[in-house]
Design a protein around this nucleic acid. Structure first.
Lengths: 251, 251
DNA sequence: GCCATGATGTGTTATTTTTACACTATCTAC
DNA sequence: GTAGATAGTGTAAAAATAACACATCATGGC
């Protein structure tokens, strides 16, 4: 059904001219400014939050933006995203993943600008750093409205939030939102808040223990006004070795 | 734990200068040429294939490229990807999805070029179009080697293939690779080839019938040298209505 | 026409996974 | 020491998955 099956690696028999000067080729094409935008999620007070900065653009006065920057010359975009995180939070040991590129021609009022969205997860130990000045603010994701943010950043945020929800079902990356030691209640609160569902406590515990990557630290919560729960730590090596796949949480 | 909780929508109390001229801002930043690259998958002869074109760049003489092009001014990248497909195949009713942006600074020998990879699925009815000249060739995905292709296109292909494998487990998009009417054997062959696993025939049929979006056309295969199987059609509306999620194929 | 070949089509059972559900233990606050 | 709140635990039903074998039907060769 497919034609031309056997043509692999035959000599070129073409009337096209071969391009000798690739630099000239690249020079001849249109160029676009590129930004990276980091959707930095945090979890606190049983709510998923996103770190936004006051827009410094006059027409977006009073609105908030994702943390982003133009990509430097010859800078890989992953590096640019890490740079933004480092500049804003002082941290570079954070979870970061590329999510999607946004390219609507009119998404930026100053002309065409492409942006590549990155999703990043900070835990509350990172929050304790003095990264917050008057320009930065943790916003509750669920209540943030389109009118509150600049550009198409609500759309980007929504895309990243949907990405996070889906990704949480196949990979325990949500643990990056918790401190190193955490209780099972904190873990369950995290899943319930992000997935926006109610989970059964016994089944939740059973499922996580069966996956066998929670290490009992022997310690207990001490900042809590009721019976303290055990604190666990996530064993990343055990997780990687575990052939049992993360089948999704659907209690 | 998070500071600054209540600052939402308060007046800006900042010493930053507000940016008035967004055009000037955008003008001041570095620009990068952008391409889209389409990873066009087809399925034939029980093998997953990818459509490649002979490179017209002298230093890649004899190598193959993904079908791509520079993005036009003010062209959304999805549109650019559809344009590439239309120009190459004459089709625009095909499955297309953005997969990932590739940005290694040296990925293009002519200087920095970003590329946004799109994954596209053509079925054998599209293949029958006379889209194939001497420049185009369907390559078997499993046997394609890095040395056969130009740029970082093997890496892009690998990423898209992994994306396809994963996506097939959560969405029946693989049906886009089959003609409108298909037999269950063809469907199973598709899944076995793409996921690179062996499936139990009875369980496979049971699973698909239970999902209740295959319509019996009443027709039978007629191009086959054995007992012909029934032909089915995919009911996309029923699929969308079906609350039963696509739980993955793991027979 | 008959037979060999090869793919179609079909059910049941065991196993595993998921879901639903309630009580006691322990710590804090008062 | 008592009230309040969360920690911690097991079992049984239901659903999904996995393993498995044989009769049917069209073709192709004789």
């Amino acid at each position: 059904m497919f034609e031309n099956e056997t043509a692999l690696q035959q000599p070129v028999a073409s009337d096209r001219a071969l391009i000798k000067d690739v630099h000239e080729l690249v020079e001849s094409y249109p160029r676009v400014p590129i930004t990276v935008d980091c959707v930095i999620f945090g979890f606190d007070n049983n709510e998923l939050k996103v770190l936004l900065i006051r827009s410094d653009i006059e027409m977006y006065h009073g609105k908030w933006s994702l943390l982003g920057d133009f990509a430097h010359d010859h800078e890989e975009l992953d590096d640019a995203a890490y740079r933004v995180l480092r500049e804003r939070t002082g941290m570079d040991d954070v979870y970061l993943e590329q999510v999607r590129t946004f390219s609507k021609p009119n998404r930026h009022p100053g002309g065409r600008v492409l942006t590549v969205a990155y999703c990043s997860l900070l835990n509350s130990e990172h929050h304790d750093l003095k990264i917050l000045d008057n320009e930065l603010h943790w916003h509750v994701v669920k209540t943030l409205r389109s009118e509150d943010v600049a550009f198409d950043h609500k759309e980007i945020l929504d895309t990243c939030y949907a990405w996070l929800q889906k990704r949480m079902l196949e990979h325990p990356l949500g643990l990056n939102l918790l401190p190193e030691k955490f209780s099972l209640r904190e873990l369950q609160n995290l899943y319930e808040a992000i997935l926006d569902i109610k989970l059964d406590r016994r089944n939740f515990r059973k499922k996580f223990f069966s996956m066998d990557f929670l290490i009992d630290t022997g310690e207990y919560e001490d900042d809590v006004h009721h019976r303290p729960g055990k604190l666990y730590r996530f064993d990343f090596d055990k997780y990687k070795l575990n052939k049992k796949r993360w089948t999704g949480i659907e209690f």
